[in-house]
Design a protein around this nucleic acid. Structure first.
Length: 225
DNA sequence: TTTCAGCTGAGAGTACGGAC
DNA sequence: GTCCGTACTCTCAGCTGAAA
């Protein structure tokens, strides 16, 4: 049995970036352009049609690895033989989501906002309560639930884990000793790329990826052999 | 001009790994 | 086994800019 990788891709080409043109809109919404999941068998990325479906898959992916056949729910003729829906090239920002994140309670919205490149943090996560109140941390959720008792809604249904950017230097890292020693010119020294095409569910909380950007299409070259 | 929402950086706390 | 340093996560407060 193999696992599957979850991915939330944010476009940088025809899709507005959060820190630029999209800044006009006052009411924030997800700036994730597409949701994809990697097939555990063929390692090809498949678009997930709706955010709700994506969240459903993400919640159970550890027990129920995603395979192309799963996508037959919305694409009856899909098989592992089909071309991948998306390949990793330079036109998208890729982020690998954590598996086993619970779906938000009914009436709640889980909002992911990708920050601009070079910041101290990759993204922010919010929960929009049914009342419209925006909650930005577990403590705020706890306080909200304390004040507004919502039947069937518990803290365990919330997770503020943000996805990890595939691009290594998207987030400004803290200086490390080794980095200080290696860094003689201020330039980032690229490391060997390690394509993420398959992520064991039990390890995906601690994803590792190398290379500042892997412009080759990993989906077409499955890592598992 | 004021208000409010979104964005960002920074500090505190915590976890992890390496050295001794 | 313990201590220390490093890196990460969580949380919050301030700044900026758009809308009213």
């Amino acid at each position: 049995m193999e696992g599957s990788a979850l991915n939330a891709a944010t476009g940088t080409g025809n899709i507005p970036c959060p820190s630029s043109s999209n800044k006009k809109s006052k009411r924030v919404s997800d700036n994730v352009s597409a949701y994809t999941v990697q097939c555990a068998k063929c390692s090809k990325w498949r678009f997930i049609p709706t955010k709700a479906k994506y969240e459903e898959i993400r919640e159970t992916i550890a027990e129920l690895p995603f395979v192309c056949e799963t996508a037959r729910e919305w694409r009856p003729d899909i098989t592992c033989e089909e071309e991948p829906d998306l390949v990793r090239d330079g036109s998208w920002n890729w982020a690998i989501d954590k598996p086993c994140i619970p779906q938000p309670p009914s009436g709640w919205q889980r909002i992911l906002r990708i920050r601009a490149r070079g910041g101290t943090k990759f993204a922010d996560l919010y929960y929009d309560a049914p009342s419209g109140k925006r909650l930005r941390s577990m403590q705020e959720v706890q306080s909200y639930l304390y004040e507004h008792s919502e039947p069937g809604v518990t803290l365990s249904q919330f997770s503020f884990q943000i996805p990890e950017p595939l691009e290594e230097n998207y987030v400004r890292k803290r200086r490390t000793l080794s980095a200080t020693l290696n860094d003689t010119s201020g330039a980032v020294v690229p490391v060997a790329a390690t394509p993420i095409s398959w992520i064991p569910p039990d390890q995906s909380r601690d994803l590792h990826f190398g290379g500042e950007r892997n412009s080759t299409s990993d989906a077409e070259a499955p890592a598992e052999s």
